[in-house]
Design a protein around this nucleic acid. Sequence first.
DNA 1: TTATAATATGACCAACTTAGTTATATATTA
DNA 2: TAATATATAACTAAGTTGGTCATATTATAA
Lengths: 137, 137
Amino acid sequence: MITKKAEYAIIILTELASHPQGTVITSKRIAEKRAIPANLVVQLLAVTRTAGWTVGARGPTGGIKLTVDPAEINMRQVIEAVDGPIGITRCLFSDKPCHDKTHCSLRGVWSEAQDKMLSVLENVSIKDLTDAAQNDC
Amino acid sequence: MITKKAEYAIIILTELASHPQGTVITSKRIAEKRAIPANLVVQLLAVTRTAGWTVGARGPTGGIKLTVDPAEINMRQVIEAVDGPIGITRCLFSDKPCHDKTHCSLRGVWSEAQDKMLSVLENVSIKDLTDAAQNDC
DNA sequence: TTATAATATGACCAACTTAGTTATATATTA
DNA sequence: TAATATATAACTAAGTTGGTCATATTATAA
C-alpha cells in the first residue's frame, strides 16, 4: 500500500511547483493550504531535501522552494523516497526466490503486475499534476 | 500490499488443481507439501469453500477437492476473496473524492496504476500457474 | 454404536506498520 | 538579541498481519 505520507509528499511538491519560480513558501503555509498536519509537512520536507528536490531558507523571511524542474520529478520517485522500495508482495523485496527454490512462477506474475503499476507512476510528473486543475487528494 | 494469506490461498488452489481430477487431498497433506501452517490451510480452505471453488468431505477418507475448472479462477479473484477489495492507496477505497473536493487528479493516477496491475492478475488463472513447473512462492 | 479422522468456526495474541505528536536544536534576519 | 523559521529525532496510539489455540460438528470405518 502506498502510504498517506507519500501522498502528502506529492501534494507538497505540487504546491511548491504551483508557486512563482524562485519565491519561497513556509512549511506552515503549505500545511494550512493543503490541510496536512504541520509537523508532517516538516518531516516530509526533510525527505524532499535529502532527495535534492527542495532547499529551505531559515529565519523570519525563510521558506521552502524547489531546486529542480517539477517535470523532472515523477510519482514513483517521490513514493520511494518516502516509503522506501515499493513491493506489492513480501516476496518482491528479497533477491532470492522464496524457500530457496530455484524458480517461482508466482514471483514472475507479481513482478509483472507491479511493473505495470510502476510504469504508470513513472510517467506522471509533479508538473503534470500541477497542470491539472485540482490535486488535493 | 497483497498479504501472505492471499499467496497461500493461491498456492493451495494450485496444489488442488495439480491433483487428479475427482480425487481428494487432506488439508494436513497440503500443509506438509507446501510448507504452510496447517491451521492457516484450514482457515483459507474455508474461504475457498465460501467462494464456491472447493468442497470438503469429512470423515476418515475425507479431504478437499476443486468444484470448478481451475482455468476459471484468476488471481485477482483469489486475492479479493482472502484480503477483501484491493486498493493501492487509502483513497481508492471510498467512493467520494478526498476532502469532499469535486475532483482529484491524483485519484485518477492511482486508479489507472491499480487497474494496470489488476489486469495482469486477472489474466493469470490457477491453471496457468499449475501448468508452470514450480509455484512454491 | 462408538471411536476416530476430518472439516468448520471463532477467539485470541505478538510483532510490525502507519499516521501523527512532541520536544529540542540550530540557523537567520530584523 | 528576540523572533521566526527550518532540521532532526524520539515517541505513541491505533490498526494490520501472520499465526496459534481451542472447540464444535460431521461422517466414515470398524
